[in-house]
Design a protein around this nucleic acid. Structure first.
Lengths: 202, 202
DNA sequence: GAATAAAACGGACCACAGTCCGGTTAATGT
DNA sequence: ACATTAACCGGACTGTGGTCCGTTTTATTC
């Protein structure tokens, strides 16, 4: 039988098959516990022991499922970010397909900035020590999307590194610093993003 | 928890005055011990206890001087990076003053990339969890320099955010990922930097 | 439905970052 | 030289991330 719930937890577009039922159940319990704690007490006060206790499982289970604190955060972020991913891949223009590539790039930046104002702290906490986990599927998906749009916009050069450059500006840590510590308004960030896009698409 | 005043010492171009002699001696001992450990066993195997033991002081002393592990790393990185800072501020062209702004920008990127191939791992470890410490004087100095060059190159728009965008690509975590994990050669990174500079300076 | 293998569970255990406070040492004034 | 004070020192202590391994649960096979 096909279990829709089983697909919720994880990566953007991959179900995970052949998982035991207790494992699946515990994963849901853990994610729920984690999001409860975050919503209630903030990201910083989330400890792995706390999540385990809240979910009523052992600590080892948390680490088996998510590997590390960052992994758990990543899972949380993916859960929230799933709608965003579907929006820019399959949703209506200008974010989704149907609009000119450069407009889609602009929309992508604006949407990312808006998203980070909502759950940016979780996304930031999802990074390994020393920046975001650039090898994680979610990050790769974003870069792949950017590459596609850049090519479609007529970029001839190294679109892969251009995608890295674009994604670097949308990093949660950077945007939160600009927004919170430096007090820069959303509009200014969006404008800067557009300038960057224009600069890289010539 | 953390005394900002005590961080002043690590400021790129400031001597620290009014410091007690034992404190000064211990700081030197600690920095030496830290760089020894890093050179010998790598960044990851540097522990605060280890540094304290190697230097022959108590653990509390390490934290009083450097505030945190990241602070100690930052101090190490600054020690090495000081020559670099002097080079791009006062050294010969094209890195230092005397060359056209755009050439200086190109040279700055190339020099940063070369530098990171040497002690990038220390610089990366100098970041707080969730990216580099963007509020640290060293980071600010880099951005200030970039802003100056951008303005000098005729950029009319938001040069402050443009500087953030440039600096984001030179982030140690990102460059090490591209170089080590993705196997991108130096030349390609330099080329991408130049494209970015050209894009942002119109 | 029982045997078996594989996978998951749990919590004791470890290492390390960061804190705290009583004791000590260096600078200053007399 | 001595007293005073402020800063520094050290190492015991705590909280948390992460590991390990004996035990329990699930799925499969006969």
């Amino acid at each position: 039988m096909f279990d829709m719930e089983r697909m919720e937890w994880s990566l953007p577009l991959s179900g995970n098959d052949g998982e035991r039922r207790d494992a699946s159940r515990n994963r849901r319990l853990l994610l729920h516990a984690a999001s409860t704690i975050v919503a209630c007490s903030g990201v910083d006060s989330l400890t792995m022991d706390g999540v385990a206790r809240e979910a009523g499982v052992g600590k080892g289970t948390v680490f088996r499922r998510f590997g590390s604190r960052a992994g758990l955060m990543q899972a949380l972020a993916d859960q929230t970010g799933r709608t965003f991913q579907e929006a820019f891949m399959f949703g209506p223009p200008p974010l989704g397909p149907g609009a000119p590539a450069r407009e889609r790039l602009r929309a992508f930046g604006a949407a990312s900035i808006d998203r980070l104002e909502v759950d940016g702290r979780v996304v930031r906490a999802a990074g390994s020590p020393g920046g975001p986990d650039l090898a994680h599927p979610t990050q790769r998906l974003v870069r792949l999307h950017l590459i596609m749009l850049l090519r479609e916009a007529g970029v001839q050069g190294d679109s892969e590194l251009a995608a890295y450059q674009l994604a670097a500006f949308l990093d949660a840590g950077l945007l939160l610093h600009l927004s919170d510590d430096r007090g820069m308004p959303r509009a200014r960030l969006v404008r800067a993003w557009n300038v960057l896009v224009d600069g890289l698409t010539d």
